[in-house]
């Protein structure tokens, strides 16, 4: 069975700065994978390589078995790989409706755009009330929901989600993860990059731990929680009793 996304021995970076060293990751159709690790270990770079925003300096990126290394970003999107980038991920100068319209016109075609819009507003009534508001004036949580609305309606084959919980209130994070779960149930594969591991591990099947640009551990999600706890609070790892943090 061909993997939906496969990174083979990928290295990447920015200019002279190297962020990833020979990383290999695979995502099967319908599978949810969490990429975990501390700040600055290359998680975001990995997400960018996986969606074609950044071309790897060496190694191969395969989507559905097709070598896509170095091709334009829009081809990844058309191949069904969606990216929810970290930080602001909506067009701040466009209205809420235009943000959605831009995306649906491309992915659903002209005829289906009104239906897609209606569905988005039905799922996210908060957006319906603000459909003409300029997206840049939404709060961080509202912007994040707008980005989620976009990908949920599009139902990509694979969603690469980068630090979705960053700077959001717990109640919004819960909502974001409810959306992700819905997406997973509808058959999309997920590659979730997170620093906040609790939610991610509850959702994902497998987890991969990155450390300084290389994969340091990978395995089933339920074993990952303990790993992360000792990893992040390594300094305390002598006190086993303290270190054990159970995941739900």
């Amino acid at each position: 069975m061909t993997a939906l996304l496969e990174l083979r021995n990928v290295s990447a970076g920015y200019g002279a700065f190297r962020a990833l060293f020979g990383v290999s990751v695979e995502v099967q159709p319908g599978e949810a994978v969490a990429i975990l690790g501390a700040n600055g270990v290359g998680k975001t770079t990995l997400a960018r390589v996986a969606t074609g925003l950044l071309a790897p300096t060496s190694g191969t990126v395969l989507v559905d078995g097709v070598d896509m290394s170095g091709t334009a970003t829009y081809r990844f999107a058309r191949a069904g790989v969606a990216h929810a980038p970290e930080g602001r991920s909506v067009f701040a100068t466009l209205s809420v409706e235009d943000n959605l319209r831009l995306s649906f016109r491309q992915s659903k075609g002209r005829a289906n755009t009104p239906a897609a819009l209606a569905k988005a507003f039905e799922l996210f009534p908060m957006l319906a009330a603000r459909r003409h508001q300029i997206a840049g004036t939404l709060s961080g949580g509202q912007q994040r929901m707008l980005a989620m609305a976009r990908v949920i309606i599009e139902e990509p084959k694979l969603l690469v989600a980068d630090e979705l919980s960053l700077g959001l209130a717990p109640i919004v994070v819960d909502e974001v993860y409810r959306s992700l779960r819905r997406l997973k149930e509808s058959g999309s594969a997920l590659l979730i990059v997170e620093q906040h591991v609790g939610h991610a591990l509850a959702l994902c099947d497998r987890a991969i731990l990155l450390d300084r640009g290389t994969v340091s551990w990978s395995g089933p999600a339920r074993e990952a929680a303990e790993r992360v706890a000792t990893h992040v609070f390594e300094n305390d790892s002598g006190n086993d009793g303290d270190a054990a943090a159970a995941a739900g």
């Binding site: 999107a77 991920s89 067009f91 701040a92 831009l102």
Partner: peptide
């Protein structure tokens, strides 16, 4: 208008 703001993000929309 989208491209002016962010060509990269526009490409992510295909």
């Amino acid at each position: 208008r989208a491209v002016v703001e962010s060509p990269r993000m526009t490409e992510l929309n295909g």
